[in-house]
């Protein structure tokens, strides 16, 4: 899962990035509004953490632009002002949630999980398919009732596929969700992790759609 973090403060941005990485998110961190706007145009994200007081282009303007383009990306805004005007302006411009500085890291993570879950239309906090039950909040996975251990990347890939149950995900899309900028990506890494997951949950758990990408098996039948 890939998240865009737009925060101009070096200390705070660094902290949030580290915190998000703990939760196995791939994080792209930009320091100003203009870079945020460009990043949102060029890449696919699962959520965006947006500071309102950004240099070069305000967070509000980035948000307005995003919604104007019809992008339904979940956006959580960070504001340093605790007056309600700021929050109202942010929510009205299309934010899905807000946090006032200073905030709690676990709360930020919980709110992001909720935003991402709601964005995929899931009401339940767990994702299920073919005997696999995944709980994003705790990162716990059970297969036919038994706990299963997965590596961070395997887990990210599984999460991505579960979230788009009935859709075909291209290799590029899957790669985007696994790696932040600057992280080395091997040419066949997605295949490797697909292979691992198939070994654990059965060969038909993930279906290869030739020339397009991957999809969870049995979903269409």
């Amino acid at each position: 899962m890939r998240i865009l973090l737009a925060e101009d403060d070096a200390l705070l941005g660094d902290g949030i990035q580290a915190g998000l990485k703990f939760a196995d998110y791939a994080v792209d961190w930009v320091r100003d509004g203009e870079s945020a706007r460009l990043a949102l145009l060029d890449h696919l994200y699962d959520a965006c953490v947006l500071d309102l007081g950004l240099p070069r282009r305000s967070g509000l303007s980035v948000l307005t632009d995003l919604r104007k383009n019809g992008n339904r990306l979940p956006v959580l805004i960070l504001t340093a002002r605790d007056t309600s005007e700021d929050k109202i302006a942010g929510l009205d411009a299309g934010a899905d949630d807000y946090l006032t500085k200073p905030f709690d890291l676990p709360e930020l993570l919980a709110r992001l999980r909720a935003l991402i879950r709601r964005a995929t239309g899931e009401a339940k906090p767990t994702l299920e398919h073919g005997g696999v039950v995944f709980e994003p909040a705790t990162k716990q996975i059970t297969f036919n009732g038994e706990a299963v251990q997965l590596s961070a990347r395997e887990l990210a890939l599984l999460h991505e596929l579960l979230r788009h149950k009935n859709q075909i995900r291209t290799r590029a899309q899957l790669e985007e969700s696994l790696y932040a900028w600057g992280e080395e990506t091997g040419s066949n890494t997605v295949e490797v992790y697909v292979h691992h997951l198939r070994k654990k949950f059965g060969a038909d758990f993930i279906r290869t759609v030739r020339g397009l990408g991957y999809q969870l098996g049995g979903g269409k039948e």
Partner: peptide, 28 residues
């Protein structure tokens, strides 16, 4: 308002330090 951002940073960084499993990350 001006103090909120550094305070937020301190809070987050402290929580990150508490969650860090390796010494280098915690030190940072």
């Amino acid at each position: 308002h001006e103090l909120r951002t550094p305070l937020a940073a301190v809070r987050i960084q402290t929580q990150v330090a508490a969650l860090s499993e390796n010494g280098e990350q915690r030190q940072h």
